[in-house]
Design a protein around this nucleic acid. Structure first.
Lengths: 382, 382
DNA sequence: ATGCTACATGAATCACCCC
DNA sequence: GGGGGTGATTCATGTAGCA
């Protein structure tokens, strides 16, 4: 299919059927291509826009070799206001294309990230974190006139303050040896076999490491989600999305990058599904306290003690409420009434077991839930 | 001298003789006080302005204790544009007061730093570095809904691109074990005896650590220079300046902070300071197992064998946990589950290499750590 | 003195479903 | 759309108390 026909096909599919050109690279300036994508259609956007580096002259190392600079045509802007206009244009379209609960990541350096952050806030985006990619092996400052610029900044934002965004907290915690993941990420720059080269010469001046995208995608998407990258380059986003069982859409101007990206992604094998479906803590395992009463795990009239304190008592009513000094309500409300703020009643109310030991009522919930799963097992085995 | 007379004296000295009120705290809003200082008169400005945090509700730790919020009157702004106006006002005056070869540091978080950076650039400042203060002991994200906000951002800027600014490269290199100082700084938050308290209660909600100012002042001033802090607070800038033999000028509104700062600075001996006496931590070298998964050294879905036993298997999940018979957890927990006591998972779990031989996963860790320190990476890549 | 445990706390934009 | 009910969630460090 010719390029022109390809573009026509994409536009046709999107406009007519509101379907998305999944797992494809669309050629062109993202300011021209984004308008063809439907409203509220993608789950995540990762953007690595031009940094507006404003390098003035060649830079030489102490051994007098020349540093290959980022002076591609796509990184030339004549002024801040021109850069701002450009940024507003693509960010506005990203906002339209993003689902209301979707999220946006943008990466940059001090040359451009302050302008990006300000524009994001002015467009109504709500910043969740700024994350620092700390390079374990940055290029030193050869002339010794500044601090080694050893990091880049990522902004993670959603469309509004009340967006119900995805954050796979437990996956992040697991990835970090069971400690909460922080806003400082230690990742080497892209080099070695991962760096795409032709005849030993790197074809993209700012190729991002796959490890960076791995963490972003694992943290803020689910398998099957659609990830859009409006500055696709050599397709790091697509390669990692493919590996993690996510769908992707890339937008890129340069044919050379597109070809390299297509070859690269074609070589990626997705991970097996059972390695991707992570044990997500279910939010829907809610069990009303009254169910325990119905199933005789706790009896109407039984006495519960707050925080193992034998003097703070409540009586279980037949409807599953607790009665405290004439007042009655749920285990949570009763606990809140005593400690003065919202709290989890399952962990605050204790009963005396057959040995005379205090046990939180949560153990009864556990007992009940495991009993149910045994029943299910029984049914399945029949 | 009464307060009014004191202000009159300052204005008189500045206006008439162009002398500076050195080593003094001027009381008032810096937007009112700065205009009294002469043009091009100070060498360095350090500013820790309000962050515009916009906290909405109380926050509780999992142990149900309440987090003391930053809800001081000085951090209340009704909108971004009001915050921008405020920032433009004081930054514009700072630009006027700063010598042409002087420098400016501003600290902030994602709530405000993008706006500050944009305004700086729009006023003509030239950014030299953004520096990341990485907190070794930040407050966690108690609800597990974002990444731990473990850093703050500093911007180091000069008045124009051709300013002949101070950077004590060799002092910085010496301070960093003879390695070039990078843009990521590892410094604990201000606590313990350094934190100023009255009756055990901190008097300023956002007191900065002296180690941070120590590095800034050592890097970008000379002895005898004049350092201005328009948001002086409890005087960290003054205390460190005094210790390092620099002159300082503080501007602060709150009388309580001023009094604490005066007492604090009076206790400082301007002795030759010992850099190593400051609690500056080096970067951690801990490597989570998940990092190897992120870097594709081990793949989701891959099978590991316990103690080379082909019958005791685990599958690597995409989050870096191991899955064993439906259970999942870290390599260490998985190993403990099997052998019954705490153990080092790195040495107990084996994979099959390309020759079909068992190799402990520790060899991958070694491979990763040696790979990122390769010299050619340093030289070849931006 | 030393070691151990318990407790306090820090610039934090900190939930979500269902009626 | 608002309000009430249910329940998920933390790390490093300094200090106090006690054996």
């Amino acid at each position: 299919m010719s390029l022109t026909n390809h573009v026509k096909y994409i536009k046709f599919m999107c406009a007519r059927y509101s379907t998305l050109p999944l797992n494809q690279i669309l050629q062109g300036d993202c300011r021209d291509i984004l308008p063809d994508l439907p409203d509220r259609s993608v789950d995540l956007i990762f953007a690595d826009p031009p940094y507006n580096l404003q390098l003035q002259q060649d830079l030489y190392r102490p051994d007098r070799s020349r540093v290959e600079a980022v002076n591609d045509a796509w990184d030339q802007f004549s002024s801040f206001s021109e850069y701002d206009e450009f940024s507003q244009a693509w960010l506005k379209e990203c906002r339209r294309v993003l689902k209301d609960d979707g999220a946006l990541w943008v990466i940059g350096t001090y040359h451009n990230i302050f302008r990006i952050g300000t524009i994001l806030q002015d467009l109504g985006f709500w910043i969740l974190n700024d994350v620092i990619w700390i390079k374990t092996n940055p290029m030193p400052n050869f002339r010794g006139v500044r601090f080694t610029n050893a990091h880049e900044t990522l902004i993670w934002a959603v469309k509004s303050r009340d967006a119900n965004y995805i954050f796979n907290h437990h996956a992040m915690k697991a990835l970090n040896d069971d400690l909460q993941m922080r806003s400082d990420w230690y990742i080497p720059i892209c080099s070695g076999p991962e760096r795409i080269r032709i005849n030993g010469k790197k074809i993209h001046s700012t190729q991002k490491p796959e490890a960076l995208l791995y963490r972003i995608i694992l943290a803020t998407t689910r398998p099957g989600d659609v990830i859009l990258d409006p500055f696709f380059g050599t397709g790091t986003t697509g390669a990692v999305a493919q590996r993690l069982g996510r769908n992707w859409i890339g937008i890129e101007q340069e044919l050379q990058y597109i070809q390299a990206a297509r070859e690269r992604i074609a070589r990626v094998n997705p991970a097996p599904a059972d390695a991707l479906s992570l044990p997500v803590r279910s939010r829907k395992s809610r069990l009303p306290f009254g169910t325990l009463v119905e199933h005789h795990l706790i009896k109407p009239g039984q006495i519960l003690y707050f925080d193992r304190n034998p003097d703070i008592r409540a009586m279980v009513l037949s409807n599953g409420h607790l009665s405290v000094d004439g007042w009655s309500g749920s285990i949570h409300m009763a606990a809140e009434k005593i400690c003065g703020r919202p709290t989890n009643g399952w962990e605050r109310w204790y009963f005396l077991d057959e040995h005379g030991n205090f046990q939180p009522v949560a153990v009864l919930k556990q007992k009940f839930l495991s009993g149910i799963s045994k029943e299910d097992d029984l049914k399945e085995n029949l």
